[in-house]
Design a protein around this nucleic acid. Structure first.
Lengths: 355, 355
DNA sequence: GTGAAAGCGCTAACAC
DNA sequence: GTGTTAGCGCTTTCAC
């Protein structure tokens, strides 16, 4: 029987309904909700009761529209399935939750096009700001997003001394590379192979530069160290290590610019019959959870992931708050916010050179 | 100099501005945007030009408000940092992206309170529906969410034959457990230890039941197999395996209800001097990426993760579309949607029993 | 085919 | 203290 389609009271209660129920006007309800205005204690109670009685919950899009501020933050990553990102995303979500904002995950697949589409849809409408990991986005797209009213923060920018022209959280990955390499050198290793990931955007260049710095500081010739570029995955590291070790069987250590490839390198070494760390030392960078769970556990340079996430959120919030002030975003120098320095974590994958 | 704070044209262009620019009214612009109404070809072109010229992008919250439908889907997980969830989340995000919806990640930390808070804020306001993984939520909270207009779909429900009273994607984990156990039995193992995770909510109970079924089918006494409950992590599996192996050194195989604990068990075995798989076989369930990357690579029972994600999204969408029809959600039987059966993936962590 | 107008649920001036 | 009112940006009947 086709009666009125809108059932009388089953739909979500609105402010107006709460107001009617409490015998006040919606402005008053809004005021008690936001503890904003001056509301009499008795009405306040009546309103609170009405809210509880009706099970009222604010309608976030409506609020966003009226307030002119978006209720979410977007996090752009190449793929959330890469083991590093979830650790970071968790920290971001925790930081956001405290301030009542929500996290939208955007996987770009490393495709600038996908990233751009996300930015276009979200920036300034659903999302008040954008956090960017190495998602292979076009910096011009990112700057455009700023102009659209959604600040962008680059998380884990690799070169503290060099501004990307965009606000960012910088982590000294040059130092990370240096610490990793120095550790090997101090263990007596001289013939070290390097596995360098993510050529795109020069990511990991800083890490390799750190390697070079450490080599030179020790009076070694960095150019003599064989280098292989690999994709930033276990498989990539595995293949790279196989190639490296078969072409240079005299290598006593492998330096990888990231943990995943380092882990892959350890497996390749094992498959090739190398005993890690007795015959071959392996070191990575980042210290993802997996690093401590491998056998042997991976020696690596820990990077302040959680801190970077929190700094990123804080910086983004600051930028969002400041949007529109002083005429804008584009001109003044992009703020770079430096996280604590990385530090070496010695585990079981490195040992003194024996050959 | 304090001039007008609102700069004349820097703010995001609105429909009305596009309309003015094109010499039409906003209704018409809206019509061309949604290819909804009957719009003359020439005006259509003028409007499109205006949109391009101004760089107009729809304001998602405004649209959501006017349309009465929320622009996101919420995914509730215990912690996105658990290696299984990102794989699932990636598949969900891919499925959603195709339909222009966005993914909000909610980490509950396994805390029903946190989960409830998320549901309360998102369900029916910002999020049109909720996908739930084993996030330790209260089923009553979930049913309440349905009444609030945001359907809930349980992903990876473990017991296809038993309805949770909530729509769900079911995966036959009993069969998974059975396959894993049968594999060990067929290899000649008789003294098998079981590591059972996530006691809460009886999750993994189905998996262990499958183990029992396989044992009985082979004429073995399941009660004779030592069982340890462990947290659903590598560490949990590590500790459990250590205990199991030290108390029962004659065990020739370990059955774990999840890959992470299985991986941990392999490490414990290695640390205890057991050669996997020659002296000890280890099998897991799920087939997360890590399973194929461990050394030895983990034999496991693969579960259709991506398929479950896609089915979950499809089911959720269906429920969202049907919300309000035929008077509602509560009464009719909750739909359960069964994913493909799990299947055994033999790798290097299992071998014939030698003792 | 196009425009006028009402309204989605909420906030924020301002008046009383 | 509380109510009135005018939007926020968009969609959508309904006239024309």
């Amino acid at each position: 029987m086709p009666t009125t389609p809108t059932s009388t009271h089953s739909s979500a209660p609105t402010l107006a309904e709460v107001a009617r129920h409490a015998g006040v006007t919606s402005a008053t309800v809004s005021n008690v909700l936001r503890s904003r205005g001056r509301v009499g204690e008795v009405t306040r109670q009546r309103v609170l009761e009405a809210i509880a009685a009706l099970g009222y919950r604010p309608h976030l899009p409506a609020r966003a529209l009226a307030e002119g501020r978006a209720p979410t933050i977007a996090l752009m990553v190449a793929s959330i399935a890469n083991p590093f990102y979830p650790e970071f995303a968790l920290a971001v979500e925790n930081a956001l939750r405290r301030s009542g904002q929500f996290l939208i995950i955007c996987n770009t697949d490393g495709d600038p096009h996908t990233g751009r589409a996300y930015l276009e849809q979200l920036a300034g409408t659903l999302s008040a700001g954008v956090l960017v990991m190495n998602a292979n986005l076009d910096f011009d797209d990112l700057r455009l997003s700023e102009l659209r009213g959604a600040p962008v923060v680059l998380c884990m920018w690799e070169k503290p001394l060099e501004s990307p022209g965009l606000p960012c959280v910088a982590v000294d990955f040059h130092l990370a590379g240096e610490l990793a390499a120095r550790h090997l050198i101090e263990l007596g290793h001289r013939r070290i192979g390097a596995i360098v990931g993510s050529k795109a955007y020069g990511i990991h260049a800083a890490r390799y530069d750190g390697f070079v710095t450490a080599m030179e500081a020790a009076g070694l010739d960095p150019a003599a160290a064989p280098v292989i570029h690999a994709s930033d995955t276990t498989q990539g590291g595995y293949a790279a290590a196989r190639e490296l070790l078969s072409r240079h069987p005299d290598l006593t250590a492998l330096f990888a610019t990231n943990d995943l490839p380092a882990l892959g390198a350890m497996q390749a070494a094992a498959d090739l019959g190398f005993d890690v760390p007795r015959q071959l030392s392996v070191v990575g960078i980042t210290d993802i959870h997996l690093a401590s769970e491998s056998r042997p556990a991976l020696t690596t340079v820990a990077v302040p992931t959680v801190e970077a996430a929190e700094l990123g959120v804080a910086l983004l919030r600051e930028l969002i708050a400041g949007t529109g002030k002083s005429g804008g975003q584009g001109e003044r120098e992009a703020k770079v916010c430096v996280a604590s320095p990385p530090h070496l974590v010695v585990r079981a994958s490195t040992a003194p050179a024996s050959r």
